[in-house]
Design a protein around this nucleic acid. Structure first.
Lengths: 118, 118
DNA sequence: ATTAGTGTACTATGTCAATAGTACACTAAT
DNA sequence: ATTAGTGTACTATTGACATAGTACACTAAT
């Protein structure tokens, strides 16, 4: 099933984000097995190598553990998941603050807009 | 003067952001003339076409007015600048909210992090 | 030992965005 | 008409990304 991907970001990055989100939201539980690279490639309508890159990045950030011949699994280290959650939040916040500053907005007015939105 | 550009974003986009910020902050006044594409290219250590693209985008968003043979000027339409300010804020906010949602964070916890940071 | 299922590695190819180099076109002043 | 200064258009190059095909390596089950 070919899925819809945004053009402003590489597919592998979007898949990484999606899986990260599913883990942080609890949709994917610690220890749970992800689809094989081939399965996921077909599901998403992308190439095996693209999925491989996704799994590689996820493992590099210790969000998953890959066992050759067996598959790729969400890490059972729940503390690590918590760490990642913190790291990603502060990183997102920092980037956002830098961006709004360079565009001439203040943190306070931006927070107001955020409260109203979504 | 070769300047420092981030690698995670195209140079032209960074220059657009910078000029937008300078306008919104009031560092660049309505009617003020920007450097010529060649001047700016040399100053920034980039190619003429990169600057041209920057000026093109700025004109497309009606932040500047380009007069062939004369130069590129900040728009004298101050209302338009105010509009752009609003548009950019809501757009930034929307993108940010979408991003944090897809990564599994709530708006409220993110706002807390923002308040502490920066 | 064989098989099926898994991840991994390597090379080649195509596409597109970003950038660069160069030549052209318009405007104002002389 | 010429010149200097401006924006514009065209083509080429580079690199990142995605794809494709193929081969390899490990694991578990039989």
């Amino acid at each position: 099933m070919t899925q819809d991907f945004s053009k402003d970001k590489p597919i592998y990055a979007q898949l990484v984000d999606r899986i990260c989100g599913d883990v942080l939201k609890g949709y994917l539980k610690p220890g749970e097995k992800l689809p094989s690279v081939r399965e996921y490639a077909i599901e998403s309508g992308v190439n095996v190598n693209t999925v491989q890159r996704v799994y590689k990045e996820l493992e590099a950030m210790e969000m998953t553990e890959t066992k050759r011949g067996q598959g790729t699994f969400i890490t059972t280290n729940e503390e690590r998941i918590g760490q990642l959650r913190e790291e990603m939040m502060t990183q997102l916040a920092t980037q956002f603050l830098t961006m709004i500053d360079s565009l001439g907005f203040t943190k306070e007015e931006m927070i107001e807009v955020l409260k109203k939105g979504g």
